[in-house]
């Protein structure tokens, strides 16, 4: 029997998710043994035309990481969708828009200006800015065009499963591959990770006081972080309660609060708004002034609460 064909593709991503695949180390051999990798631009030399030449639906499963923020990526994922049986959004950017999605809180012009002109490390005396079309002696050149907003994969194509994380933990990859190979899959659209939030397994949850209240917020660098105590009880914003578990609390074990890369659990759509509802309830304040004073100690609420999920919030991006 022919081995199932598998593909990997990357869009707007940092490469960390590719790294995560490679990080499987000797376990990757088991994967390679079981499947036939037909397309993986990061590791193997395939071209678009190779994909186009494949029969529709011939790839059993394609893992796509990274957000979609250029027309080239959009075109490629549509093509891959056609050729693949299953599409798995791989990693936070593909799942939720991720870090590239934070760009949605500003506009395209500002991003280009900051990246190419005003950035402190930029040397760009000719003030060159990438253009979709530019003349050259050999005729007009075409470059992929940056989209106005970064999108999660399912905002562009139909997605069958999601594997969350920035980056994706090894265990989740192996579990997902096993599930796919054995056909032991949950309903379409499921996130292949636990259904509860980080607090479920977090060791520090036990240290939560009976009535948790917060009267001032600290950023992690502002205080000496206790290595055992719940971060919220220390006045440090930890997205753990509103973030899907399954990461083995890697950040928390490294004494850093959860930043929310796994996104919300199934009953919650808008991770940041939900966190506002939960977090604000805990304020130790009863008057406008007291509440405002606590709010003043929170820097950049949107960037903090939606660090990975701006694209998948109700608004999705800055609207004006």
């Amino acid at each position: 029997m022919a081995k199932p064909k598998v593909a990997f593709y990357w869009c707007a991503s940092c490469g960390g998710c590719e790294e995560a695949v490679v990080d499987l180390a000797e376990d990757i051999l088991k994967v390679v043994e079981a499947v036939d990798i037909v397309f993986w631009p990061c590791a193997l030399d395939f071209k678009k035309t190779d994909v186009e030449a494949m029969e529709d639906g011939s790839i059993a499963v394609t893992f796509i990481n990274g957000a979609i923020n250029s027309d080239e990526q959009e075109e490629m994922v549509h093509l891959i969708r056609k050729k693949s049986g299953l599409i798995v959004a791989f990693g936070a950017c593909s799942h939720l828009g991720g870090i590239p999605g934070l760009a949605n809180l500003t506009d395209k012009e500002s991003i280009l200006r900051a990246s190419y002109l005003t950035g402190p490390t930029n040397v760009n005396q000719e003030k060159t800015i990438p253009l979709a079309k530019s003349p050259s002696p050999d005729g007009e050149l075409h470059l992929p065009e940056l989209k106005a907003n970064a999108l999660a994969l399912d905002q562009v194509i139909d997605v069958d499963y999601y594997i969350p994380g920035c980056s994706v933990p090894k265990k989740l990859i192996l579990d997902a591959v096993t599930a796919i190979l054995t056909g032991n899959l949950p309903p379409k659209g499921s996130v292949l990770a636990p259904t509860r939030t980080n607090c479920d397994t977090c060791e520090r949850n036990k240290t939560k006081p009976e009535k948790l209240t917060i009267s001032k917020f600290y950023r992690p660098y502002e205080i000496e972080l206790d290595e055992e105590k719940c971060f919220l009880a220390q006045g440090v914003i930890c997205m753990g309660p509103v973030t899907r578990g399954g990461c083995d609390e890697r950040c928390i074990k490294g004494n850093m609060p959860c930043r929310g890369c796994f996104g919300p659990v199934d009953n919650v759509y808008d991770q940041g708004a939900k966190f506002i509802s939960a977090l604000a309830s805990l304020f130790d304040a009863k008057t406008d002034e007291e509440v405002q004073a606590i709010v003043d100690t929170i820097q950049d609420p949107a960037g903090t609460f939606y660090r990975f999920s701006v694209a998948k919030s109700y608004l999705g991006h800055k609207v004006s």
Binding site: I276, S277, L279, A280, S281, F283, A285, K286, D288, V291, Q292, I294, V295, I298, P301
Partner: peptide
Amino acid sequence: KALRRYYL
């Protein structure tokens, strides 16, 4: 609770 959420 409403007051706190409102300001945030």
